[in-house]
């Protein structure tokens, strides 16, 4: 896996940009090349906010990725817009708390994560982005679990409660992602 691309998409306030930046930092910690690109252009209020992260062992060429290996969608408009764009053989992670739809595509793997419910249960409703981030890492191993854990500790070290709940949901998301991939592997 010399290069892996992930798009995070949702609406403003879901921690989309933050999820991408945390992944970028984890990539840097592993001495990898990374690029983070925000959605940049005219967008309508309540529409989609998204960012793409490229993690690579070698020099990154094009920062513009038309078909990422993985897309994490957090709301319905993002599902509609991005589901067709996952690269064949890639991974789609769907926040099933807010998205009822399922993907018909047979050329990709799809993982449904009730991110909002899991975040609320863990006592931090704002951490749905971390649930998905955990699931992504569990399912793809784009970076090591340790790297993302350390990144979050560094960012949230000064807020003990927030750190604890975020690490908790990160682990839960990660286990979910790993299990789902194991199941697929058996088949």
């Amino acid at each position: 896996m010399s290069q892996y691309e992930v798009t995070f998409a949702g609406f403003g306030g879901q921690g989309i940009m933050t999820a991408g930046q945390l992944l970028s930092y984890a990539g840097i910690a592993e001495d990898k090349q990374v690029v983070w690109i925000p959605s940049y252009g005219p967008e309508m209020r309540g529409g989609t906010a998204y960012c793409t992260v490229v993690v690579s062992k070698t020099r990154i060429g094009s920062p513009i990725i038309s078909n990422p290996r993985c897309i994490c969608v957090f709301n319905r408009p993002s599902f509609d817009k991005f589901e067709p764009m996952v690269k064949a053989g890639g991974l789609l992670i769907v926040n099933s708390s807010l998205i009822n739809s399922t993907s018909d595509r047979e050329d990709i793997r799809t993982l449904y994560v009730p991110a909002n419910e899991m975040a609320i249960k863990a006592g931090n409703p704002k951490s749905s982005n971390i649930v998905v981030l955990g699931a992504l890492i569990g399912a793809s191993e784009v970076v090591k679990y340790d790297s993302i854990e350390k990144t979050i500790e560094k960012k949230l070290g000064h807020k003990k409660e927030a750190l604890e709940s975020n690490l908790k949901v990160l682990k839960q998301g990660y286990e979910l992602g790993r299990k789902a991939m194991k199941k697929k592997a058996k088949v």
Partner: peptide, 10 residues
């Protein structure tokens, strides 16, 4: 170009 301003890299 605008990408140079908007994207993040280490």
């Amino acid at each position: 170009d605008g990408m140079i301003g908007q994207m993040m890299e280490p």
